[in-house]
């Protein structure tokens, strides 16, 4: 009788010990995993930071002017189509315009079909190379959309009118 009570107490102590043990193991796993995650995320952020130039899909005009690529090397130039710069040349198919990023401007020439979203004051990515006289010769044009979504009915309104309508409809 007494013996069995002692046994029971012992098994209880042992059970308590293992419960504490598993809680401790859980804590250990938690701490280890959090440390591993912090290191991993830190490494990924560092890699992304190191890649910030290489992983860019295009150069902006300021970069092209600061470090002009050797003529003939295929590069991409991205920026805004400068307002009032878009002109069609005498042959009717070649267009000329300027790409700007607020700091610099690069003249571009292109012959071919432009995407339907290609307009002045909107974004563009030109694939091509630097030609003679600092003119970028584009082989292909891609339109770049910005993050603003404006209904078509509002396109002729002034900014204030459109904002008023947006306020009224979003409420």
């Amino acid at each position: 009788m007494q013996e069995s009570a002692e046994n029971m107490a012992q098994t209880e102590r042992m059970a308590k010990g293992t419960v504490q043990g598993t809680i401790k193991a859980k804590h250990q796993r938690l701490v280890l995993l959090v440390i591993a995650l912090v290191v991993l995320i830190g490494a990924a952020l560092l890699a992304a930071w190191a890649l910030r130039n290489q992983a860019s899909y295009f150069y902006v005009p300021a970069e092209i002017q600061a470090h002009p690529p050797e003529s003939g090397r295929a590069v991409r130039l991205g920026g805004m189509v400068a307002k009032g710069s878009l002109k069609t040349e005498a042959d009717g198919v070649t267009i000329a315009f300027a790409v700007e990023d607020g700091k610099a401007r690069v003249p571009v020439r292109f012959k071919g079909i432009v995407p339907s979203l290609f307009v002045e004051g909107s974004g563009v990515v030109a694939e091509g190379h630097m030609g003679a006289g600092g003119v970028f010769e584009a082989d292909n044009l891609l339109a770049k959309h910005d993050e603003n979504y404006v209904p078509r009915e509002m396109k002729d309104m002034t900014r204030e009118q459109a904002e008023k309508v947006m306020r009224e409809t979003t409420r």
């Binding site: 910030r52 860019s56 899909y57 770049k144 993050e147």
Partner: peptide, 11 residues
């Protein structure tokens, strides 16, 4: 946001 991309920034 980090890199120049064809895709636009989040709206």
């Amino acid at each position: 946001i980090w890199w120049n991309s064809q895709h636009q920034a989040p709206s």
